[in-house]
Amino acid sequence: MTDRYAAFHALHHGDRPLLLPNAWDHASAAAFTARGHPAVGTTSLGVAAAAGLPDAAGVLRAENLRLARLLRPLPVLLTVDVEGGCSDDPAAVADLVAELADLGVVGVNIEDGHPDGGLASPELTAAKVAAVRAAVPGLFVNARTDAWWLAVPDPLPEALRRARAYRDAGADGIFAPGVPDAATVAAVVDAVDVPVNVLHRPGGPTLAELRNLGVARVSTGSLLYRAALGAALAALDEAASAAGAGAADPPSYAEVQRLSGLSGRDPGAAPGGVRGR
């Protein structure tokens, strides 16, 4: 397991940012693995919505454990979005992460957004980070601040204060979703000496541009789940349309079946044995 932790850490120190696709079930994680991605994260929105549960409400403990158990055989490094750890008790958060680590998980996101829609105190989130760090040394702790996500007035100083507190508590990385522009991304990178993670924004900076800003990791968040729903609705609308304009061909039935048997295969091998990119 130590080698897997080290491998995941190393992905944050390459010559380009780690592009982390976020999965919500076995099929999506297997598909991303088959495309050659060495690591996959989970999206709390996708996991919650697929289970008929609300996101950001601290109710995904059982779902996260179930999904980690399901994804364990895949030949990929898995990091899990545990929101705020499903508890305001740092010891309980550490217990959850230790259970995930026992299932092969190599990283977690811990956020300071609170189920009431506000921000948890930085001291509480830092205590959670420290508890996880003590319980599972080596696991990558990505501490997320929602200062922009939750529209805090003048968010940059607050985000930097929180980022430094989480770093000092032992966070291996800082995740700042919602950062609005390149100058602000650079300010976050300059303020902390651990890898910085941002959210991919369609039409926003490219991976090359983010690399030049010093970003270490770029997550897709809920985008792929929402895109999948959008594609499903588009296909449904096309089926109902007299025009029958047609849409891009989805994966075939056989390809999806093969993804279900991906466990133990080369993570770069796409369905049918074709090398995926």
Rank of each mutant, 00 (worst) to 15 (best):
L20S: 11
G36Q: 03
R201I: 06
L156T: 15
L160Q: 14
A29G: 10
G273D: 11
P153F: 04
A57L: 02
D3I: 02
P115M: 04
G113A: 14
L236N: 01
A56R: 14
A234Y: 04
M1R: 13
G46V: 08
A245N: 12
V108W: 09
P180T: 05
T220P: 00
P17W: 03
A135T: 12
T2P: 11
A127H: 07
P153Q: 07
A171I: 09
P271A: 00
A228M: 03
L199D: 10
S44M: 09
V198W: 02
V80F: 02
R164V: 12
P75M: 00
Q257K: 12
A62W: 01
P73L: 00
L150P: 13
N64S: 14
G36K: 03
D95W: 01
V256E: 08
P38I: 06
A131V: 09
A270T: 07
A165Q: 09
G170Y: 00
L96I: 11
A135V: 03
N197Y: 01
D116H: 07
L213G: 00
A239K: 14
R161E: 08
I110V: 13
A68F: 03
P195L: 02
R226S: 05
P153E: 02
V196G: 12
L20A: 07
A234H: 13
V108D: 06
E238L: 03
L20I: 09
V196T: 15
A126F: 06
L259A: 02
A127G: 07
A182I: 01
A29Q: 09
L11P: 09
L77F: 01
R16I: 00
P250C: 08
R201L: 00
G273A: 06
P137H: 08
K128V: 04
L150Y: 08
V256Q: 11
A171Q: 12
G14V: 06
A56Y: 10
A91E: 14
G84H: 11
D146F: 02
R265C: 02
R69T: 15
A254T: 15
L65Q: 12
N109A: 03
P155M: 01
